[in-house]
Design a binder for these strands. Structure first.
Lengths: 300, 300
DNA sequence: CGATGTTCATAGCTATCAGGTATCAATCCG
DNA sequence: CGGATTGATACCTGATAGCTATGAACATCG
């Protein structure tokens, strides 16, 4: 027979009361089975824990050493159940989060701040990455949720938009149009070299840029490609060309670059969250609850 | 119903195997009761620990959080039983030790050294004190064993001699007899003032000194009393008088004091150990085993 | 100094439940 | 689609935690 927590609970009660009768009362059992269980515990350990002299119960040295341990084990068990409950509510645990670099300039910071505040014991592992790599990482379980650019077409993944914004023009400060006050007519850029990212990385955004220009009556002359938005802005600053970028990228605050909203109504570019549709991770549920406007569990 | 260690043992097995059948085999039980116990554990916690999909068993986040806790609780329980066993063998615990100051110059140091080496996890609380106070402290449980001077007459206490030594004369360095080579005739001190401690503190030693002098044909002229041997030697150094002290006190090495063995055969003075006759403290047993020449448990 | 009360241990019984066997149901694989 | 695998279910059994009654040792008190 093995030691069970029952033995520890009983022993602690007896050690605290130093009286089998009262201890039994406290444990809501009768005295004989309590004596039996204590005896069983002692036999199991091969150690006498209590000295019973028919009249007085006293702890042996081994008993008082064991008492401390027993108390700690019981407390630890309490802690473990609380921890399990908190974990099941998504209040402790880990969550691996992917994000495209642009998310870092709008949705990501306030959301992380709120998440930290609501569930400080959840550890977030953040991985900057492109949309397509994030989708693969989601499927393979390397991340649990990703800030991505649409579209997300895999049936195993769920997607919800969490942010929409317009496009603005980024001009080198010495560009003739940069001095002009107020809004800008997009058609004025028809002859300027454009900097853009490769289409496969974010087809929707790429297409938005191109069709925006089409609507203004020209097709952009693509001079240079770059993967990260920050790089694009750097290239603008280096006077390689102009670019159409999400409005929040203004926050980059790069010197030598001027941001201007066109007069033509801009299409919306969007960022969304993607996650495994059937994922039951408790921490993910909490994350989605915080991130998504209305309550949307993974299965909803 | 309460959580028991059984539940934790079973859960850890399942979590490690991720397979109810193999886990059951490892636990030497059949699979159905294992499933039942896991379910009972989950109900108890109010938390799902495992995701069973009829084909694959996986840990939930709560499950992996709980797994770590469960492992630690089980390990802790192992530790606790080992600790209890070691404590019952007197290898861990405490022991309160009293000692007369003279013991510090002969028996105490080597004995403490050996004890430390044999049972390093036992904490010794050392209390320098007189014999009579130690006897009271033993009765009242403030100390568990004492280095005392005989006699010990209380029936509740056991006593065994552990050290015997002769008396030597302590002389001021400028005393006429201090220059003399070789041994000293005790009678030569018949006119010197003596320093001695109050008789109630150590009757046997006091009487040994006085009868030693009587045998040499004189009665010592007691000039000054002092409680501690170190004080007596200090007074000798201050040329207040001479003293007869246990030979090991030479180790005090006080400057200005010369130690000389008399030619007359010296009576023996002794130090012994006293403890509660019925005391079952495991650490005391170990202490006595190390301290006493032959094996002598308290009840022996 | 016996009477009484207190306290832990023992004896015998009961009821609960851990664990066994047999089987089902869902899923996977060839 | 059939066999294999695996967790769940149904039902039964045996071990044992816990109960009541009682005993034995000891302390206290009239």
């Amino acid at each position: 027979m093995n030691i069970e927590l029952r033995h520890l609970r009983y022993f602690v009660a007896v050690a605290e009361e130093l009286h089998f009768g009262r201890a039994a009362q406290r444990l809501h059992i009768s005295q004989p089975p309590l004596s039996m269980q204590i005896r069983a515990l002692e036999e199991n350990l091969g150690v006498q824990l209590l000295e019973r002299t028919q009249r007085r119960v006293a702890l042996t040295q081994a008993g008082s050493a064991f008492l401390g341990e027993a108390r700690q084990i019981l407390a630890r068990t309490e802690q473990a159940t609380l921890l399990a409950r908190r974990a099941s509510r998504g209040e402790v645990g880990n969550l691996a989060v992917g994000f495209v670099s642009t998310a870092d300039y709008n949705v990501l910071p306030p959301l992380l701040r709120e998440f930290r505040q609501r569930v400080p014991a959840v550890h977030l592992a953040l991985h900057e990455s492109t949309t397509d790599r994030q989708l693969a990482d989601l499927i393979d379980g390397r991340i649990d949720v990703g800030f991505v650019l649409p579209p997300v077409e895999d049936a195993r993944l769920a997607y919800r938009t969490i942010h929409r914004e317009t496009l603005v023009v980024a001009l080198p400060a010495r560009h003739p149009l940069a001095r002009q006050r107020g809004k800008l007519r997009l058609a004025a850029l028809a002859e300027s070299p454009f900097i853009l990212f490769p289409r496969p990385l974010a087809p929707s955004l790429y297409d938005a840029v191109v069709s925006y220009c089409s609507a203004a009556g020209f097709s952009p002359h693509i001079e240079q490609e770059a993967v990260q938005m920050q790089t694009i802005v750097s290239l603008v600053s280096a006077e390689i060309g102009v670019a159409l970028i999400p409005a929040s990228l203004r926050h980059l605050g790069r010197t030598g670059v001027v941001y201007k909203a066109p007069v033509e109504p801009s299409p919306f570019t969007e960022i969304g969250l993607a996650w495994r549709r059937d994922d039951a991770l408790a921490t993910l549920q909490v994350f989605l609850e915080i991130a998504l406007p209305a309550g949307h569990g993974a299965a909803t």
